[in-house]
Amino acid sequence: MSKAFFIDTTVCTACRGCQVACKQWHDLPAEETENRGSNQNPEDLSFITYKLIRWNEKEIDGKLRWLFFPDQCRHCLEPPCRDTAGEPSAIYTDKATGAVIYTANTKGLNVNEIIESCPYNIPRASKDGILAKCDMCIDRVQNGLLPACVKTCPTGAMNFGSRQEMLDLAEKRLKEVQAKFPQATLLDPGMVRVIYLVAFDPMDYHDFAVASGYSRGITRQMALRKMASPITRMMRALG
C-alpha cells in the first residue's frame, strides 16, 4: 500500500531525535560542524545527513517564534529527480510503498542536473558523484517497522502510515491547529508522500518548504509542472 509521512511541525520540539535515529539506522558518520550562531546543526543536508531539523528565528505579530522544520525527501508522487535521471537502476519508485530510492548507480549520471530538478533541494552528492537522501527506511518498512525517525519521535511530530491515513490525520490536525493559528496550512499534500503541517507562512520555515517557493531555473520549473500533473489532472476531472 502506498505510504506517506505526516510531519506536524506545530508539535516538533527540535529535540533532533529523528536526526540521530536516522544516522544510527543508516550507520552514517557524524558531521564535523562549527558554531554558526544558529542551533541548526549540521548546517545542511549532505551525502551523510538525510534528515535535518531546520531552525528559523522569526518575529511574527510582535512575538518571537522558533520555527522548526524536520527536512527530508518528500518522496514525490511524480519525482522529478527520477524523471531527470531517466535511469531506473539509479533512481526508482518502490511500487509497494512509493518510496523514491537512490542506488549507487547514480554515479556517472548528471548529478547536478538531478539535484537542480528537486524543488525541495534534497539530494546531495558524495565526492565521487553518488547521490544520497532519505530512503523512507525502506528496509524497516518492508519488515513492518516504522521509519527510524518516526519510531523515535517523542511528541508525535513524525507520523507514518498509508497515504490515506496520513492525509486524514493531516486534515484533522490542520483543523485543530487552525483554531490557534489561522495561517496554518498543509504543504503540497497532493504532490508528495511527506506532508507537512506548518502554523505560519511556509517561507518563514525554509526556502524550499514548498515546491513553488524557490523555483528558479528552467529544470526546476519544468519539474514542477510535471509534479503538479496529478493535481492538474484531478482538477480537470473535477471539472
Binding site: V11, T13, C15, G17, P154, T155, G156
Partner: peptide, 9 residues
Amino acid sequence: AENHPISFK
C-alpha cells in the same frame, strides 16, 4: 522540551 524531551509527549 530540551532537557526532558520525552516529557513533551
